[in-house]
Write a protein that binds this DNA or RNA. Structure first.
Length: 261
DNA sequence: CCGGTCGGCAG
DNA sequence: CTGCCGACCGG
């Protein structure tokens, strides 16, 4: 019997396997069918089926079912029609994808669109600079960065960076890629030195003792040694260390404020 | 495993 | 508009 290979699929949670079967005969000979298998062995043969099963635990918006890879930039080939823009719809034009309402981000089995209420259509939004600067920050907002990957020009998702063991995450999500995103964001967001969570209490109960101006990682300092020993450490990680060290030595330099990644 | 639709989309 | 092709799903 011809063994068919089930390969690991890095874009999906651990344990998920991908299989590609080439059609051998018939009109569609040469074409292939792609299947996925859950850790428990359940077979999936389409993206909608996969999506229904995974629910909100994995965002398959940029998941390419055929290749099994995340393809950022590839807008979801939405099977369902966009019917939210009466204006452009009435004109017979194609629905404007940019006016599509966002999907509610709360945990729910089903995706729920938000309801847009326009009570005073003519109103301008008041701009209150003071308020804009001090917006409340969501605790553990870094979790939303989970699964975010960098990609090259071909839109292939790059391998996750390996982090030195010295860096340890604090809080509900201990994955390396989230940790890295948090640190990288901290570099952009604040002009303060980056030290990690210096309070020991934060490690035991981060929900209460978290220092929200610091990334979700245990306290660390960057020494020359971190930068000098590139063995087993990627150039990109070294670069981040250098950026942190530079910033921490000159904390008074004005830093550009950016949005998190 | 393959065929038959349907819908997106390039020409 | 039309023909092609990929996604999806039924048998």
């Amino acid at each position: 019997m011809m063994e068919r290979k089930r390969t690991d699929c890095p874009a999906l949670p651990p344990g998920w396997k991908k299989e590609e079967v080439i059609r051998k005969s018939g009109l569609s000979a040469g074409k292939s069918d792609v299947y996925y298998y859950s850790p428990s062995g359940k077979k999936f043969r389409s993206k909608p089926q996969l999506s229904r099963y995974l629910g909100n635990t994995v965002d398959l918006a940029c998941f390419d079912f055929r290749t099994g890879k995340m393809m950022p930039g590839k807008l979801q080939k939405n099977k369902q029609r966009f019917r939210h823009d009466p204006l452009s719809m009435a004109k017979g034009g194609k629905p404007d994808l940019n006016t599509a309402l966002p999907i509610r981000q709360t945990a729910s089995i089903f995706k729920q669109p938000v309801t847009k209420v326009t009570s005073h259509p003519g109103n301008k939004v008041k701009t209150d600079l003071q308020r804009a600067i001090e917006q409340p920050k969501q605790l553990f907002w870094e979790k939303r960065l989970k699964g975010l990957r960098s990609s090259d020009v071909t839109e292939q998702v790059l391998r996750t960076m390996d982090l030195p063991k010295g860096l340890q995450s604090v809080g509900p999500d201990a994955s390396d890629d989230t940790l890295l995103s948090a640190i990288a964001s901290a570099l952009h967001m604040s002009s303060a030195p980056i030290t990690g969570q210096t309070s020991v209490a934060a490690e035991k109960n981060p929900a209460i003792w978290l220092n929200t101006s610091q990334p979700l990682c245990k306290a660390f300092t960057v020494t020359d040694e971190h930068i000098r020993v590139p063995l087993f450490t990627s150039l990109r990680v070294i670069t981040i260390f250098i950026l942190i060290q530079t910033k921490n030595q000159k904390p008074d330099l004005p830093q550009p404020k950016r949005h998190p990644f």
